[in-house]
């Protein structure tokens, strides 16, 4: 029999018996980061490729969600800090090695620009929500009112329309950085064997894009746009599944600690929730629904969209939780 125990010391709150210093805040933050990245990416990409007319919802309307969810993410991030009053310390230095620093600056840049981008489509967004959501209409009307009172707002508004193209370019670049960053944040922590894989970055990026596509698909009005994003989603889900298979193949071919990490999902405590709820519920099931829809079955698009979004969020919660359990010692 092998025995390993702490004679004394340790049993430190949130660290023993297993690490649990990140709770819901970080996974939520990663989820909304990925979602925002997806929304902005598709919007700017189709704008820049001249498909604004073809995919009006994706380009003009959906990105209005981005700044909202980014603010949510920032609040979550702030709540995660043990010293939230000191958050500004993040902006006193740039540390290229630190994904946290990277993320803080990326968000710092994305935040204003993600406001600027949908601002240029305020009229279109108003039109989309007309008769649908009174609150959003009121909000947009209020913004228009403000413009009349404060020239600077109007100036910014006009600027956003005038420089739509450069803003789109910058936003697209930032959205890719944001998407990649949400994956890299975890994979930068070599100390957690589950996160210690270069596949995590691309996997999170693809997952983020897929949640973005799902949100657009949900909002889209025309059948054409719905089907288009449904197809995009299908491709992304396929890539995701491919990455997941490779992720585990990589773990199993790696060090003992990573095999142990993979074990959490292959018979361990996360097996059911990961394969059942995320892979089947959040990827395979919505994918099947989308395929059926492509073949003409009438399925409300909101169902696969919801499951993809749910799966995307769940995936991040699982990865953050499980990753903290995996360790080198003890």
């Amino acid at each position: 029999m092998k025995e390993e125990l702490f004679v004394s010391g340790r049993n430190i709150p949130f660290i023993d018996p297993v690490l649990h210093i990140w709770h819901w805040q970080i996974p939520l933050y990663l989820f909304v980061g990925g979602l925002a990245a997806g929304l902005i990416f598709f919007s700017t990409y189709f704008y820049l490729t001249g498909k604004e007319k073809e995919y009006p919802i994706a380009v003009q309307v959906a990105p209005f969600l981005a700044p909202i969810v980014i603010v949510l993410g920032l609040i979550a991030l702030l709540l995660d800090l043990r010293h939230p009053a000191f958050f500004w310390q993040l902006y006193t230095t740039i540390r290229f090695d630190s994904p946290m620093s990277w993320g803080a600056w990326t968000l710092g840049a994305v935040m204003p620009l993600s406001v600027l981008w949908p601002l240029s489509y305020l009229t279109e967004i108003r039109a989309y929500f007309d008769g649908k959501n009174r609150y959003i209409i009121n909000l947009i009307d209020w913004i228009f009112k403000m413009m009349k009172q404060y020239w600077i707002i109007e100036w910014v508004y006009k600027l956003s329309i005038e420089y739509r193209k450069p803003i789109a370019i910058v936003n697209m670049v930032l959205s890719i950085i944001l998407g990649v960053y949400t994956g890299i944040l975890l994979s930068a922590f070599n100390a957690r064997p589950l996160w210690n894989t270069s596949l995590l970055g691309p996997l999170f990026l693809v997952s983020g894009l897929s949640t973005g596509a799902a949100a657009i698909m949900w909002m889209a009005k025309s059948h054409h746009e719905k089907i288009a994003f449904s197809k995009i989603d299908l491709i992304l889900i396929g890539v995701e599944l491919f990455f997941i298979v490779h992720l585990f193949m990589g773990f199993l071919a790696s060090t003992a600690v990573q095999q142990e990490a993979a074990g959490l999902f292959l018979g361990g405590e996360f097996t059911a929730v990961f394969w059942g709820f995320f892979v089947v519920g959040g990827l395979v099931f919505p994918a099947i629904l989308e395929i059926l829809e492509l073949y003409g079955f009438k399925i409300p698009i909101s169902i696969p969209a919801f499951f993809i979004l749910f799966g995307g969020a769940l995936f991040r919660f699982i990865m953050v939780d499980a990753g903290q359990i995996t360790r080198y010692l003890y």
Binding site: D80, L81, P84, M100, F189, N190, Q324
Partner: peptide
Amino acid sequence: IGCGACIQACP
């Protein structure tokens, strides 16, 4: 700021 990154980073 108590973000916990260093705690995650320490094997």
